[in-house]
């Protein structure tokens, strides 16, 4: 195996064993999002529709609305679940020093860990999907659209990871990036269609959102899962473009930030 590939592969394997070290954490990672879905989203929309099958909200009947949210759950699991807390903490506590010394750098380590995390999340999402299908929450599933959706979600995850990497790097300048993380996550949840379908928003807002990457993080991938592949290729192109931009911005920020790094606490 090429030495570089074996560095990445070993890091991925190590990330898996780290995830599996804490069994309760791992279990919570699997069932947490599904519980949130049931207790909040399902019950909320159940009360809004008040059991009336004929009510249509923004083009969605109750079962369709639930289907939409099941898919947001899946997109959330594989696409936008990675968080930057770890990156910030490593900078703030001076742990990044190790990656400045080892011949495998900070970005490589975190990207390899992200890939390892993605594999686990795909597994978790598949299990969740099978369970939801068997309990009847998800009536129609198309194998082709599921595969296309999962492919699309990988690019969502790549973009989200590079965004998270940038937010994590802000720790070079700020001691605490918690507020920025929350702002980004809240904004993304609203503007990507993760909380409610974008059809419920006024048209001027959706017109503006069309020029941002937000709808591609939840709304369009959900649509792909639900059978509408109109935006598959254009969406991929947009996500890849944004991922490149954020990758370059990230490496620029890293170069600037690392000059300020004092390795506090070392």
């Amino acid at each position: 195996m090429h030495p570089n590939i074996s560095k990445w592969w070993q890091t991925i394997k190590i990330s898996w064993s780290k995830t599996l070290t804490y069994r309760v954490n791992f279990l919570m990672q699997i069932i947490g999002p599904a519980l949130v879905f049931f207790f909040i989203k399902y019950n909320l929309w159940n009360s809004i529709y008040a059991g009336d099958e004929s009510t249509v909200i923004a083009g969605y009947r109750f079962p369709e609305m639930i289907t939409y949210h099941v898919w947001t759950l899946v997109v959330g699991l594989v696409g936008i679940s990675n968080n930057s807390a770890g990156i910030s903490e490593e900078i703030r506590l001076g742990k990044i020093s190790s990656y400045l010394i080892y011949p495998f750098n900070f970005w490589e380590f975190h990207t390899a860990s992200f890939l390892a995390f993605e594999v686990i999340q795909y597994l978790v999402a598949s299990i969740t999907l099978v369970i939801l299908f068997y309990i009847g929450v998800l009536p129609d599933v198309s194998a082709l659209h599921t595969v296309l959706g999962f492919i699309f979600c990988f690019f969502v995850a790549c973009f989200w990871f590079s965004m998270q990497f940038i937010v994590g790097l802000i720790a070079f300048w700020l001691n605490e990036t918690w507020s920025i993380r929350i702002i980004l996550i809240t904004l993304t949840s609203f503007l990507s269609g993760y909380l409610i379908p974008l059809e419920l928003y006024p048209s001027w807002l959706t017109d503006i959102l069309a020029y941002t990457p937000f709808p591609y993080l939840s709304f369009y991938p959900v649509k792909i899962f639900m059978g509408d592949t109109t935006h598959f290729f254009s969406g991929l192109a947009i996500l890849i473009g944004w991922s490149f931009v954020s990758f370059f911005v990230g490496s620029l920020i890293f170069k600037k930030g690392v000059r300020l790094y004092t390795a506090a606490g070392m």
Binding site: S6, K7, Q10, I14, S17, K18, T21, Y102, F104
Partner: peptide, 13 residues
């Protein structure tokens, strides 16, 4: 991680 896992990682790095 157990020490040996770290060592194996460093072996690759």
């Amino acid at each position: 991680l157990p020490a040996m896992d770290s060592f194996l990682l460093l072996q690759k790095y």
